[in-house]
């Protein structure tokens, strides 16, 4: 008893400090570093790109193209209403500065400077000039963490926009991604545009992902194509967040790439793949 007491007297301070350190570390782990990202936002505030100026600098050609697109979209809406298509409501958008990247090298994340206070929710879609970037996986009041398309754990249901051949795109940590096709002999050519498919439960249909760079039809088990992502992910300065509710999953996800495997707090972007398609 006496030796125990003496030992405690000698090591009391160390033990208390060590348990404090471990306790706060465990707290940060459980809250997914929310406090840290909030502080980070404050510290990074002076370095954030100026959004107003950025938008003012958009040149006339882009504006012209946007106006033409609006015109075409409204025509499309009218035609859809003629054939009785129920259109989705126009969604609000949140412009957000990119304030950071992943805190280690194995994950491809973006830290955005907008959070729940601006209406960002987990599952929101993130777009940038060029097309789809990824989706929000964690939010704090003023920041949000985005899992990029280029992350190897990301899986997005995709389709070849010309021939409507289906497949899924998985990230490759660089500006390239791999698309695996469901068909044995897909109709795909170099330069084809790849967009999100209607089978995707996590993303709305028809968002541009990239272009086909090269094709390998002999790849087993499924033919593959290398996709060049159309967004310059490595030097993004701002992105646009669109709130999106992932549709209810009717088919249980494929066990080979289930989200449990990617684990923990980060739900993998596994797309449930319907066997009959």
């Amino acid at each position: 008893m006496f030796t125990l007491r003496r030992w405690w007297d000698r090591h009391r301070l160390q033990i208390i400090l060590a348990s404090l350190a471990l306790g706060s570390a465990a707290f940060l782990r459980q809250t997914e570093g929310a406090v840290l990202y909030e502080v980070y936002k404050l510290v990074a505030f002076p370095f954030q790109p100026n959004l107003e100026r950025k938008q003012a600098l958009e040149n006339a050609q882009v504006q012209e193209l946007q106006q033409r697109l609006t015109e075409l979209e409204s025509q499309n809406q009218q035609l859809r209403s003629l054939v009785g298509y129920v259109a989705e409501a126009k969604k609000s958008q949140i412009t957000a500065p990119v304030v950071g990247r992943s805190a280690d090298h194995w994950w491809q994340h973006l830290i955005l400077g907008r959070g729940t206070q601006d209406g960002v929710q987990p599952g929101s879609i993130v777009m940038a000039p060029g097309g789809l970037v990824g989706r929000v996986i964690a939010v704090t009041p003023n920041t949000s963490r985005v899992l990029l398309l280029s992350d190897p754990s990301s899986r997005v249901g995709a389709t070849v926009s010309r021939s409507r051949n289906m497949g899924y795109v998985r990230g490759q940590t660089s500006n390239r991604a791999i698309m695996e096709f469901f068909d044995k002999v897909p109709d795909v050519r170099q330069g084809d545009v790849i967009t999100t498919s209607s089978l995707s439960k996590l993303f709305p249909v028809g968002l541009p992902i990239g272009r086909v760079q090269s094709i390998n039809l002999n790849k087993s088990p499924a033919p593959e194509a290398v996709i060049e992502l159309s967004t310059p992910i490595s030097f993004l300065e701002w992105a646009v967040v669109y709130p999106h509710k992932p549709s209810v999953q009717t088919v249980p996800s494929n066990p080979g790439q289930s989200s449990e495997k990617a684990g923990g707090s980060v739900p993998a972007q596994s797309e449930p793949i319907e066997p009959q398609l």
Binding site: A18, A21, R29, L36, W107, G264, V266
Partner: peptide, 17 residues
């Protein structure tokens, strides 16, 4: 102990597994 504490924090900032 230092590795444990910082490892837990980094897990929180990226992903647990």
């Amino acid at each position: 102990l230092a590795g444990l504490a910082l490892g837990l924090i980094q897990d929180g900032m990226t992903a647990h597994t």
